[in-house]
């Protein structure tokens, strides 16, 4: 059978596969939410999904548009307050994986979600801001980052550091006071980057099917390190694709209906 998929689907599937069954995952909205729910609906039925709205162990049928949709509340094991989710769960070290997106990432997995261009007081493009991300990036056991790859998002120098990866590399994160281990992978639409064990610099370790090393290098704003042993990401299976497409179709149908009329 000839299976075709989009780059977005490959990225979401590759990100979903990194989530182990049974772990507690703090989920950001957007791409992380799609990937985390795909994991739950395929290989990781016991994954505990936690959204920053305080919904613990939620199993939404459709992807939430906002981080606090009623769908998340209805399908949660329990709902706790914001002080509780951030202090008793995240800060206390009860979250295994933080799943984040961002506008920019640098070679050490540091993230910007605050502004692009100009300066803080006079930004060219002001973004919503970091929300829960700074403390998720610092305190979750590990961090998965999912982000489309391009020169505007994979940058030599962040315009603003919102959330910590490995700072300036080496042991600089260990010295920072951050209790979590930091990013374990950056999953993009082209491949997977993982930190070098010593320098902590993001290194291309897996290429998605049909993507060349040159394409990834051209989509990276710094001289990209490429692993000597480069893997090819296994393509999405028919099952993964059908579950993901069903999820997106249900989501589109749910969000296009007005609730007043």
């Amino acid at each position: 059978m000839n299976i075709t998929w989009t780059a977005d689907e490959m990225m979401t599937v590759a990100a979903a596969r990194r989530l182990g069954n049974g772990i507690a995952c703090f989920v950001g909205i957007g791409l992380p939410s799609a990937a985390a729910n795909l994991a739950r609906l395929t290989h990781a039925p016991e994954v505990v999904l936690i959204y920053e709205s305080g919904t613990l162990g939620t199993r939404p049928d459709v992807l939430p548009l906002s981080i606090g949709d009623d769908e998340l509340a209805e399908k949660a094991d329990s709902i706790v307050s914001m002080p509780e989710i951030f202090r008793y769960y995240l800060q206390a070290g009860r979250i295994d994986v933080g799943f984040l997106g961002a506008a920019q990432v640098d070679r050490y997995g540091n993230l910007n979600s605050t502004f692009i261009g100009g300066d803080y007081e006079h930004p060219a493009t002001r973004l919503p801001g970091a929300g829960g991300a700074p403390e998720i990036a610092a305190s979750a056991g590990e961090v998965l980052i999912v982000l489309k790859q391009g020169k505007r998002s994979f940058v030599e120098q962040l315009d603003f550091m919102s959330s910590a990866g490995y700072f300036s590399g080496g042991d600089s994160r260990e010295k920072s006071g951050a209790t979590g281990r930091g990013p374990s992978a950056v999953i993009t639409d082209l491949g997977i980057l993982t930190p070098d064990p010593v320098s902590r610099e993001l290194t291309l370790t897996s290429l998605h099917p049909g993507i060349s090393v040159e394409q990834v290098i051209a989509a990276t704003g710094w001289p990209l390190q490429v692993a000597a042993q480069l893997d090819t990401t296994p393509p999405p299976t028919a099952h993964e694709l059908s579950v993901l497409r069903d999820l997106h179709a249900r989501t589109r149908a749910a969000h296009s209906q007005s609730k007043l009329a």
């Binding site: 605050t114 007081e121 990036a137 910590a164 700072f167 006071g177």
Partner: peptide
Amino acid sequence: LRGFIGNDLPQY
């Protein structure tokens, strides 16, 4: 809180 680690906001 154990917060703003590596975050630039305290500069502003």
